[in-house]
């Protein structure tokens, strides 16, 4: 199947994604059968209630004017029943109405990092099937924020006033991740203070990163945000840093698979998670050297 055709065939994409989600080795086979392709992954994270979904919706719509765009929205699975509510489509009105954008919800299915265990494969598959931009919206709680760093080329951290973001994010160290910061709900009191404080915190940690005020409901600031993301991706392409990002993505995809294999085969072994952390730690050390 030609690239363009595959992209256009939402049904084929959708059905293949299900196979990828349900079986890791099948996923490998499918991805292996498709040629490698350049595409970009934009990660969107932040506290629940910050307006991630609405913002993702608007960004995807802008992106879809030039690029073939897909969204993967992740929601948490219940640790007790394995069931999940996937409600992101409610807030993604434009994208779900658009003929151009492919929207898919995924349950986290108990993955430690908060992303879905098959997320790497799903993203890689979408990229190879012809999508240029894949937006990945995280659960927005737990460890998904740190995991998204390994998956995405550019990470957008969405904050909003009134959520205790200023205090909490500092505490959690979430601000260590994120390449672009959006202070959403800019119409609410406290938004500009939050932006200022975010800037100060970043400066203290020696990172100078763009911070932008947005209103995902009426779209204010979203176009600038879109341009910032495009610019960041463009810079990655030009500097060649994108290659490093992709290398890291593959690396983590592999590690993730290792984890899955071990976990599925010896699920009663409580030590496995610890073992996984060692592996990740080692890897990080070797990267830094």
């Amino acid at each position: 199947m030609s690239e363009r055709l595959f992209y256009a065939n939402q049904l084929a994409i959708s059905r293949t994604l299900t196979r990828i989600e349900n079986d890791r080795s099948v996923a490998r086979e499918i991805i292996g059968s498709l040629e490698e392709r350049d595409y970009h992954v934009v990660g969107i994270t932040g506290s629940p209630g910050a307006g991630k979904s609405t913002l993702t919706d608007r960004l995807a719509l802008l992106s879809s004017k030039e690029k073939r765009t897909a969204i993967i929205a992740i929601d948490p699975s219940s640790p007790f029943t394995g069931g999940a509510f996937l409600g992101d489509r409610i807030r993604m009105k434009s994208s779900t109405k658009s003929e151009e954008i492919f929207v898919r919800s995924m349950a986290s299915r108990g993955k430690v990092g908060g992303l879905s265990p098959s997320i790497y494969d799903a993203v890689e598959f979408l990229g190879r099937s012809g999508f240029d931009r894949v937006f990945v919206e995280t659960v927005g709680a737990g460890q998904s924020e740190t995991d998204i760093e390994n998956l995405a080329d550019v990470v957008l951290l969405v904050l909003a006033p009134g959520l205790g973001d200023d205090v909490q994010t500092m505490k959690a160290g979430i601000m260590e991740i994120g390449d672009i910061f959006a202070v959403n709900k800019m119409d609410l009191p406290g938004a500009s203070q939050l932006a200022t404080r975010t800037g100060a915190i970043l400066e203290m940690s020696g990172r100078e990163l763009p911070i932008i005020l947005t209103n995902s409901i009426n779209g204010q600031g979203v176009e600038e945000l879109h341009n910032l993301i495009e610019k960041a991706l463009g810079e990655l392409d030009i500097s060649g840093a994108i290659e490093e990002k992709r290398r890291r993505r593959t690396l983590y995809n592999n590690l993730n698979s290792v984890y899955q294999i071990i976990k599925e085969d010896f699920s009663e072994n409580a030590k496995l998670e610890e073992l996984m952390n060692y592996l990740l730690e080692n890897r990080r050390l070797s990267d830094e050297s």
């Binding site: 979904s53 509510f85 409600g87 992101d88 409610i90 807030r91 409901i217 009426n218």
Partner: peptide, 10 residues
Amino acid sequence: FGEYTEAVIL
């Protein structure tokens, strides 16, 4: 005025 989007409560 635009249109309202329901709160996601599930």
